[in-house]
Design a binder for these strands. Structure first.
Length: 889
RNA sequence: GGGCGUUUGGCGCAGCGGGAGCGCAACUGCCUUACAAGCAGUAGGUCGUAGGUUCAAAUCCUACAACGCCCACCA
């Protein structure tokens, strides 16, 4: 296809496939060597499913940033990978197997892991294809996975080093246990949900009456846990109960004798002021139990079913047990009363089951030594958050950080590399497997648990770059430049990467953390599968093209923390997205501007751009400023501003005016035509380069047709228009001069529209302007005549106003359109009077301001000067309108 | 309970101390050979409420309201 043959509409599906193949075949996605480094790691998507709008936004931002830096010649590489997402994937695979009538427990660990790998390959492949279709220039030839052998070695080394350095320890703790997934999950993975519940007031008899009291009353939301009570606590600041401290309670049902003691955890004002203490089933009670040496009685098994030894209650689930216990108390007359009580309950973020605080043996990372350095690098701005406010989120989390439970009772994940000898009690963390005990020779047993997914993904910036075996590979490419991610994993992931990277590489993992807004549905609710209101990025690409989706997404990148995505969805099907459609309109606009240039290239010879007309000087000046704004904007991650700047320039300046202005020159002499061609090609070429990071496909498709691309491999590898190379084009006078042209043409067009005069009707126009302005305008008299369809254009300081004319006052000029015999002047009079009233209002306002002594005394001189000039200008305009009104009969 | 964000024309959003903007939608007129997914023009807002600071407030401060998010706690 040549530029002359470009079809009217850009076929995104056709071009995207072709261009993508060209980029991939060209090997352009591999590392680009150069001075300065811009290595970026993709936040690895979970292999659990398809990409959603969050990924689309995330990846668009990164790709725009990467393409920009690649064009600037930096050493760029965008590292691709996916995350095994332990619990999430295991849940999905479990479900899939269950639907086939297969149970995980039946087939065993090895076969189950094979099923997980199959799943990973299938969905990992889909995700990679989707990333490709978005135009993301990641290094597809070197895809990482958090369970790759190399990666696994890195994970294992980290575990062993921390184990031997004393940062990893094992302990019996209360953890958030999911009885359905039968695993511990971290605090960060637990979700609180408010639920309506009850407070049951239970009577616990005292062994010996105290001051005549035979029983005390405790209030609880979880009566079933009373089977595990080993104490009753009161507040130390509760004088009424002081006498009871030290007394003994006989726990109903189990007849256990338990003490009453005082502890600061207790709030005397809540319930009865007596708290039943169940150290094995509540984090606070655990702490109290530890402080007061209470036994820990575990009443639940891993499925939250009551264990043996509790008579009729054994074998009951939590809920059954609750009912039975309450019934028992009621029957025995020990149920004092019941109140409604709303409270929040922890749920598993995966299966949504109610979590059970459960005492079990788990592995932990001690964070004391890690949090200090990780706090410092953010406080001293080595790591910078964009927008800046997320710094606080990070620091607050870091400050309140508790030891991290890293073991999970799952199969899919990195198995904990701790080996035990049951014969002699030997135990160690090993980087290589060992079969027999080095001490006694007995067979060894490896820990059954796997590591939390975040334990492996915390190494993402360096374990994807050769660490620890090939430190050469990382050299110069770590720290990475930017991490672009969602705010909900600042704590889970970002913070942990900082901690581990500082510990193992002595470097921060990245310099900038870019937090993008959460994309919400049109009505402000979260997009979710269950609601069926989620937008599939692939649907958007199919409907509007990847460039349109990307551009639309970039316009959404502002300081906001949420954005509503304006898409209509019905039953999970995308009906349309007005803003993406508008973005596609922009793509089409770019395509057609290029098509115009292509249609006018006959006789073109390569050559430098040159200023022939004020319009040339003006567009070059605008282009130079655009380059500066776009460059700075991308450097500062202000993608919304960048998108708006590009749109404004290309559409409102280049297309609406420069192309229109160039039409006359294209019809001029051979020299004028050639100069115009060269200038059009030049501006289009630079504009395409500036647009390319945001809209890679359409710009590449056009650019390869441009004469300036001859002999060059691809726009994505072409040089970035550096602001300093264009700065000499900046020309304020030219911008002013085109301002006059625009004002004149607009004035005539407005007059036409106002009086319903056809664009085909020629109008005689006269402009009264200063000598300098008149000269500037006259230099483009032909253009103005053309654009406004004028029969005559008269310009000068002494031009006379035709008797029956419409007058526009703008830019210090008076623009007269001779309308003799064409219109009703009563309307013109009314319009002028309306203008006059508005002017008068502005003048009064300004006059008031300028007569305010406070303003004159305190305002900056330049503001005063500006307002004074403005006031004079408005008064001048008013005088002109008055004069015109006087002349209108 | 602590923190954060948002509130600007019908819709989606910029602006964040000196005369209220953009895109879409609306209305009017144009099929002007790059583009009707276009062009030209018009209309529409006392910038959530109430105070305060300032010569000057959409913009800064305080309180309040609505909506949303995060963290903590809830025997």
């Amino acid at each position: 296809m040549s530029m002359v043959e470009m079809p009217k509409n850009y076929d995104s599906a056709l071009e995207e496939e072709r261009i993508l193949a060209k980029w991939l075949d060209g090997g352009f996605y591999a590392r680009n060597e150069g001075p300065g480094d811009c290595t970026v790691v993709i936040p690895p998507p979970n292999v659990t499913g398809m990409l959603h709008m969050g990924h689309a936004l995330d990846d668009t931002i990164q790709d725009t940033f990467i393409r920009f830096n690649r064009m600037r010649g930096l050493s760029t590489r965008w590292i691709l990978g996916t995350d095994h997402a332990g619990i999430a994937t295991q849940t999905k695979v479990d479900k899939k197997l269950k639907s086939e009538g297969i149970s995980r427990l039946e087939i065993g660990r090895e076969k189950f892991l094979n099923a997980c790998w199959d799943w990973t390959h299938e969905y990992g492949g889909i995700i990679v294809e989707q990333i490709k279709r978005m135009g993301c220039s990641v290094d597809f030839d070197d895809e990482k996975f958090t369970m790759d052998p190399d990666y696994a070695r890195a994970v294992r080394k980290v575990f062993c080093d921390w184990y031997h350095d004393g940062l990893i320890y094992r302990g019996k703790r209360i953890v958030n246990w999911c009885p359905s997934c039968t695993t511990a999950i971290s605090d960060d993975e637990a979700e609180y949900q408010d639920e309506g519940g009850h407070l049951w007031y239970l009577r616990y008899p005292l062994k010996e009456p105290v001051d005549g009291r035979e029983y005390i009353v405790v209030a609880t939301t979880r009566p079933e846990t009373m089977l595990g009570d080993t104490g009753v606590a009161v507040s130390p600041e509760d004088p009424e109960k002081a006498a009871l401290v030290g007394a003994t309670v006989v726990l109903p049902i189990v007849n256990r004798e338990i003490p009453i003691f005082s502890d600061w955890h207790v709030d005397a004002g809540f319930g009865t002021g007596f708290v039943k203490v169940t150290p094995a089933h509540d984090p606070n009670d655990y702490a109290m139990g530890a402080a007061h040496d209470l036994p820990q009685v575990n009443i639940f098994d891993e499925h939250a079913v009551v264990v043996e030894g509790y008579g009729e209650f054994s074998g009951m689930t939590r809920d059954e047990c609750r009912e039975a216990v309450v019934a028992w108390f009621e029957r025995e007359g020990l149920l004092d009363h019941v109140e409604d009580h709303d409270h929040s309950v922890m749920h598993c973020y995966r299966c949504d089951n109610t979590l059970e605080p459960w005492l079990s043996e788990q592995w932990f990372v001690a964070v004391d030594k890690l949090k200090g350095p990780a706090t410092d690098v953010v406080k001293n701005s080595q790591v910078t958050f964009h927008p800046e406010r997320w710094t606080q989120t990070y620091l607050t989390w870091m400050e309140n950080l508790k030891d991290w439970c890293i073991s999970r009772q799952l199969w899919w994940g990195h198995r904990i590399p701790v080996f035990y000898c049951d014969a002699c009690g030997w135990e160690d963390a090993l980087e290589e497997d060992l079969d027999v005990c080095p001490k006694c020779g007995a067979p060894l047993r490896q820990d059954e648990d796997v590591l939390d997914t975040w334990f492996s993904s915390q190494l993402w910036t360096f374990a994807t770059q050769g660490w620890p075996n090939n430190l050469q590979e990382m050299e110069g490419h770590h720290p990475t430049k930017a991490l672009v991610t969602a705010r909900d994993i600042i704590a889970l992931w970002v913070a942990r990467m900082v901690m581990s990277s500082l510990y193992f590489t002595d470097q921060i993992p990245f310099e900038d953390v870019v937090i993008y807004a959460t994309i919400l549905a049109k009505d402000g609710s979260r997009m979710s599968k269950s609601k069926g209101n989620g937008v599939d990025p692939m649907d958007l690409i199919n409907m509007y093209g990847a460039d349109a989706m990307r551009f639309n997404l970039l316009t959404l990148v502002t300081n906001n923390q949420d954005v509503r995505f304006d898409a209509d969805i019905k039953d999970g099907k995308l009906l349309g997205s007005p803003r993406t459609e508008a973005a596609r309109g922009f793509v089409t606009k770019i395509w057609n501007a290029a098509r115009f240039v292509g249609m006018n290239l006959e006789g073109y010879e390569p050559g430098e751009p040159s200023v022939q007309t004020p319009a040339d000087a003006w567009i070059f000046s605008r282009l130079a400023k655009l380059s500066a704004n776009v460059t700075k904007g991308i450097e500062e991650y202000r993608f919304g501003d960048v998108a708006r700047d590009l749109h404004q320039f290309f559409w409102s300046e280049f297309c609406d005016w420069y192309i229109e202005l160039s039409k006359a020159a294209l019809k001029g002499s051979a020299e004028e035509r050639l100069a115009a061609q060269r200038n059009l090609v030049f501006v289009l070429d630079v504009a395409l380069r500036l647009l390319h990071p945001a809209m890679p496909f359409v710009t590449e498709a056009i650019w390869e047709q441009l004469p300036t691309s001859a002999g060059q491999p691809a726009l994505m590898m072409a040089a970035w228009p550096e602001p300093e190379n264009l700065a000499s084009w900046i020309n304020e006078e030219a911008e002013k001069s085109i301002g006059l042209t625009v004002a004149t043409v607009s004035a005539v067009r407005a007059v036409r529209a106002r009086y319903g005069l056809s664009p085909k009707t020629e109008i005689a126009c006269a402009v009264k302007a200063s000598q300098a302005d008149a000269e500037a305008l006259l230099s483009q008299a032909d253009l103005v005549r053309n654009l406004a369809n004028l029969s005559v254009l008269e310009v000068g300081p002494e031009v006379a106003r035709p008797a029956e004319s419409a007058v526009t006052v703008e830019e210090g000029c008076e623009i007269y359109c001779d309308l003799a015999g064409m219109v009703d002047f009563a309307a013109e009079r009314a319009r002028l009077e309306k203008d006059r009233a508005e002017l008068q209002k502005d003048i009064d306002k300004l006059a008031k301001k300028l007569s305010n002594p406070g303003f004159l005394a305190k305002a900056a001189q330049e503001i005063i000067d500006k307002d004074t000039a403005k006031h004079a200008d408005l008064c001048d305009q008013l005088a002109r309108i008055d004069a015109q009104l006087a002349e209108l009969v």
